[in-house]
Lab assay of single mutants.
Amino acid sequence: MDVFMKGLSKAKEGVVAAAEKTKQGVAEAAGKTKEGVLYVGSKTKEGVVHGVATVAEKTKEQVTNVGGAVVTGVTAVAQKTVEGAGSIAAATGFVKKDQLGKNEEGAPQEGILEDMPVDPDNEAYEMPSEEGYQDYEPEA
């Protein structure tokens, strides 16, 4: 019985440690998101679009440190934060509304985080759909 109880105690310690790591990862992701939003706020009209992409990228980098179902929630929060940063930029006159959601080359930025393969159960990952990809044929 002692062996059984000791095993359960060790398992509990492992769960607590994993929860603490997840909590730490979420806190880091939130900190990076805040950094990115402050970065966007300090940019001029020309830099705002690039700044919004930076927020998304920093958040995406930190999301990889967070495991399990938390990833889905962090990704949703990050996307809403990026959308909010863009709205703030438009409201303050840093950028025109028609410039939001495009990178410096004018290509749409939507789907940055949505296409990231995420499995809350950590069982399997699927690649994003290939609808947006084109076949590449090298020139002879």
Rank of each mutant, 00 (worst) to 15 (best):
Thr33Asn: 02
Glu61Phe: 09
Glu131Ala: 09
Val48Ala: 05
Asn122Leu: 13
Lys58Ser: 06
Thr81Tyr: 07
Gln134Met: 04
Val63Met: 06
Gly73Tyr: 01
Pro120Ser: 11
Lys97Leu: 02
Ala124Arg: 09
Asp115Glu: 07
Ala76Glu: 07
Tyr136Glu: 12
Asn122Glu: 04
Ala30Trp: 09
Gly51Cys: 15
Asn122Asp: 12
Tyr125Ala: 08
Lys32Ser: 09
Lys45Gln: 13
Glu137Pro: 08
Ala91Ser: 05
Val48Gly: 01
Met127Asp: 00
Ala91Asn: 06
Gly84Glu: 08
Gly93His: 10
Ala78Gly: 05
Gln99Cys: 10
Lys43Cys: 11
Asp121Cys: 04
Pro117Ile: 10
Asp119Gln: 14
Glu105Val: 07
Val3Cys: 07
Met1Glu: 00
Glu61Gly: 03
Asn65Gly: 08
Gly106Phe: 06
Val52Ser: 03
Gln79Ala: 05
Lys34Phe: 11
Gln79Cys: 11
Ser9Trp: 15
Ala19Phe: 15
Lys43Glu: 01
Glu20Gln: 08
Val71Ile: 03
Gln99Leu: 03
Thr72Cys: 05
Val52Glu: 00
Thr64Lys: 12
Gln109Phe: 07
Pro138Glu: 12
Asn122Thr: 03
Glu105Gly: 13
Gly106Asn: 14
Tyr125Thr: 12
Thr75Cys: 12
Ala140Met: 11
Gln134Gly: 09
Glu61Trp: 05
Val48Glu: 01
Glu130His: 13
Gln79Thr: 13
Ala11Trp: 14
Ala56His: 08
Glu61Ala: 14
Val118Asn: 14
Thr22Pro: 04
Ser129Cys: 03
Lys32Gly: 01
Asp115Arg: 14
Val48His: 00
Ile88Asp: 10
Thr59Val: 08
Ala89Leu: 13
Gln134Asn: 11
Glu130Asn: 08
Ala124Gln: 10
Gly7Met: 15
Ala69Met: 11
Lys102Gln: 09
Val16Arg: 12
Asn65Thr: 06
Val3Pro: 00
Lys21Asp: 01
Lys58Ala: 11
Gly93Ser: 04
Ala91Gly: 10
Gly25Trp: 02
Glu130Gly: 11
Lys43Trp: 11
Val3Tyr: 04
Ala91Gln: 06
Glu20Asn: 14
Gly86Cys: 08
Lys10Cys: 04
Asp115Met: 06
Asn65Cys: 09
Ala107Gly: 13
Glu137Ile: 07
Glu123Gly: 11
Gly101Thr: 07
Leu113Val: 02
Pro117Cys: 10
Glu28Ser: 05
Phe4Ile: 03
Leu38His: 06
Glu83Asp: 08
Ala56Cys: 13
Gly51Pro: 02
Ala29Leu: 12
Glu35Gln: 07
Tyr133Pro: 15
Val3Glu: 01
Gly132Tyr: 15
Gly106Pro: 08
Val49Cys: 10
Ala89Ser: 08
Lys80Leu: 09
Ala27Met: 14
Ala30Val: 04
Lys34Leu: 04
Glu114Asn: 10
Val74Met: 09
Ala78Gln: 01
Gly47Gln: 01
Ala29Tyr: 15
Val82Trp: 01
Asp2Ile: 13
Glu28Trp: 11
Glu83Gly: 06
Thr75Tyr: 14
Gly31Ile: 09
Glu83Ser: 09
Val63Tyr: 10
Glu35Asp: 03
Leu113Ala: 15
Leu113Asp: 10
Gln99Trp: 10
Glu110Met: 08
Val71Lys: 12
Gly31Gln: 06
Lys60Val: 13
Thr72Val: 07
Lys58Gln: 05
Val71Asn: 02
Val48Phe: 06
Met5Asp: 01
Asp119Gly: 13
Lys96Thr: 06
Thr64Leu: 13
Glu105His: 12
Ala29His: 04
Lys80Pro: 02
Thr81Asn: 02
Thr54Arg: 10
Pro108Leu: 11
Val37Gly: 07
Ala19Thr: 03
Gly36His: 11
Gly86Lys: 15
Phe4Ala: 02
Met5Ile: 01
Val77Gly: 04
Lys80Ala: 05
Ala107Asn: 08
Thr92Leu: 14
Glu61Asp: 06
Gln24Lys: 10
Ala27Trp: 09
Pro120Asp: 13
Lys23Gln: 01
Val49His: 00
Asn65Ile: 07
Glu131Met: 05
Lys97Pro: 09
Glu83Gln: 04
Ser42Leu: 02
Pro108Cys: 04
Phe4Asp: 00
Asn103Ala: 11
Gly36Pro: 02
Pro108Ser: 11
Gln24Arg: 09
Ala19Met: 14
Glu131Gly: 03
Lys58Glu: 03
Lys34Ile: 08
Glu20Lys: 08
Val3Asp: 03
Val55Asn: 01
Glu126Phe: 13
Glu123Asp: 04
Ala27His: 05
Gly14Lys: 15
Ala18His: 03
Glu123Leu: 12
Met5Leu: 04
Lys10Tyr: 10
Glu126Cys: 12
Tyr39Thr: 09
Thr44Cys: 04
Gln79Ser: 06
Gln134Ile: 05
Thr72Asn: 05
Glu83Ile: 06
Val118Gly: 10
Tyr136Pro: 14
Glu28Asn: 07
Val70Asp: 03
Gly101Cys: 03
Val52Gly: 01
Gly47Glu: 02
Gln62Asn: 05
His50Ala: 04
Asp115Lys: 13
Ala56Gly: 03
Ala124Asp: 06
Pro117Lys: 05
Thr59His: 02
Phe4Gly: 00
Val118Leu: 11
Glu61Pro: 03
Ala91Asp: 07
Lys21His: 05
Pro120Asn: 07
Leu113Asn: 10
Glu130Tyr: 09
Met5Asn: 04
Val82Leu: 15
Glu137Phe: 04
Asn65Phe: 14
Gly68Ile: 08
Val40Tyr: 15
Ile88Met: 10
Glu35Ala: 08
Gly7Ile: 06
Gly67Leu: 07
Glu131Ile: 12
Gln109Ile: 14
Pro117Asp: 06
Lys80Tyr: 04
Glu137Ala: 14
Ile88Ser: 03
Val66Gln: 01
Lys60Ile: 13
Ala56Leu: 02
Val16Phe: 12
Asp115Tyr: 07
Ser129Val: 00
Glu114Ala: 14
Pro138Asn: 12
Ser9Lys: 13
Gly86Tyr: 12
Asp2Phe: 11
Gln24Asp: 06
Glu110Ile: 14
Glu131Arg: 04
Gly14Cys: 12
Val66Ala: 05
Met127Asn: 15
Lys45Phe: 11
Val118Trp: 05
Lys96Gln: 06
Glu28His: 00
Glu126Met: 08
Ala76Asp: 08
Phe94Gly: 13
Ala91Thr: 01
Val118Lys: 10
Glu28Lys: 14
Gly132Phe: 12
Asp115Ala: 08
Gly7Gln: 08
Tyr39Trp: 07
Lys23Leu: 06
Thr92Cys: 04
Pro120Met: 13
Glu28Ala: 07
Val55Arg: 02
Gln109Arg: 04
Gly51Phe: 03
Leu38Ala: 11
Lys21Leu: 13
Ala53Thr: 01
Asn65Val: 13
Val3Gln: 08
Glu131Trp: 04
Ala78Pro: 00
Glu13Phe: 07
Val71Met: 02
Ala69Cys: 04
Gly86Asn: 12
Val15Tyr: 15
Leu38Ile: 04
Val63Ser: 02
Gln99Phe: 09
Pro120Arg: 07
Ile88Lys: 02
Gly14Glu: 04
Gln134Val: 05
Pro117Phe: 09
Ala53Cys: 04
Lys12Ile: 15
Asp121Ile: 10
Lys43His: 04
Ala30Ile: 12
Val37Leu: 11
Glu28Arg: 14
Leu100Met: 05
Ala90Asp: 02
Val3Lys: 03
Lys10Glu: 01
Thr33Trp: 09
Thr92Lys: 10
Ala69Gly: 05
Lys45Leu: 10
Gly67Ala: 09
Ala29Ser: 03
Ala78Val: 11
Glu35Val: 13
Val3Ile: 05
Val71Arg: 13
Ala56Pro: 04
Lys45Trp: 13
Lys10Ala: 10
Ala69Glu: 02
Ala85Val: 12
Lys6Phe: 15
Gly47Trp: 08
Tyr125Asn: 06
His50Arg: 14
Glu137Gln: 10
Val55Gln: 02
Ala19Lys: 12
Pro138Phe: 13
Gly106Ser: 08
Asp135Glu: 09
Val40Arg: 01
Leu38Glu: 04
Ala30Asp: 00
Phe4Asn: 00
Thr54Cys: 10
Asp115Gln: 11
Glu139Asn: 08
Glu35Leu: 08
Glu137Lys: 05
Thr81Lys: 02
Glu20Leu: 01
Leu38Met: 09
Ala124Phe: 09
Gln134Cys: 13
Gln99Met: 11
Tyr133Cys: 13
Phe94Val: 05
Val63Gln: 01
Thr64Ala: 09
Ser42Cys: 14
Gly67Asp: 03
Gly31Lys: 07
Val70Met: 09
Val49Ser: 07
Thr72Ile: 14
Thr72Ser: 01
Thr33His: 04
Gly7Lys: 01
Pro120Cys: 10
Tyr125Asp: 08
Met127Ala: 12
Ala76Thr: 12
Lys32Trp: 12
